[in-house]
Amino acid sequence: MRRVRFLPWLYAGPTLLLLAFFLVYPSLDTFRLSLYGPDSEQFVGLQNYVYAFTTGEMWIAFRNNAIWLVLFTFFTVAGGLVIAVLADRVKYEPAAKALIFLPQAISFVGAGVIWKFVYDFDPDIGLLNAILTGLFPNAEPVGWLVNSDVATFALVGTGIWMWTGFAMTILSAAVKDVPEEISEAARIDGANEWQLFWRITVPYIASTIAVVTTTMIINVLKVFDLVYVMTAGRYETNVIANQMYKELYINRQNGRASAIAVILLLAIVPVMLFNIRRFQEQEAMR
């Protein structure tokens, strides 16, 4: 680390200016609007926040974002890691990885159709119900996307399918950086593959795991397109970002939409603090 006076501002300047315009300025505006009424003219104090924390729809959204946070983050990161490590040991790695990556290349318009053919209620069209009624002839088909008990989980499943490829790609690059000598030395010392994974690979790529996990948590906070395309938040599948969209464009409640956006920004603070600490550690160690 070298201390220099003007140079950092030259290097980071373009980024900071662009961010100030595209994200900081609108966010400050959002914060201001969150204290105003639907037409952004009448000052209402914290009323929009009270609304955001007391209405039933928002509590459904908070609950669902919590479900997303646990299931989606765990399965994408763990799944991505397992696939990255396992695929590293087979000759057809590029093909296997391409198949996992594939969903990332599909637009949301396409993904909606893809999952129709999986989740459709009609066992003649939906694969899951075809398997279910095929294996258990007495079973009733399940309305995966219209049953409030399962719909959120169906959406999380689609999310995992789409994003595991992202986690895998980033983690795979890190796994390949683990020096061969270290793993070889451990093998000679009698470590089995399981121990190798936990004692060498995981610690070595810990910072990349943290990056991928952070990205997935942010994805969870922002999850919108998928829910909007598949259920539009019906059947108790609502999420925070979808409720914000609804307040903004359907209910025309600018103030409430802004308050929800500010809540999202506050929710990220712990993640920010965690990342700062981690980067400080990283700098102390390098």
Binding site: L221, V271, M272
Partner: peptide
């Protein structure tokens, strides 16, 4: 440096619709 960087991380979560 750290403050600015943590703001960059925080900006990841800004909903585009609000901008």
């Amino acid at each position: 440096r750290q403050v600015l960087f943590s703001i960059v991380v925080g900006l990841l979560v800004v909903p585009l619709q609000m901008t």
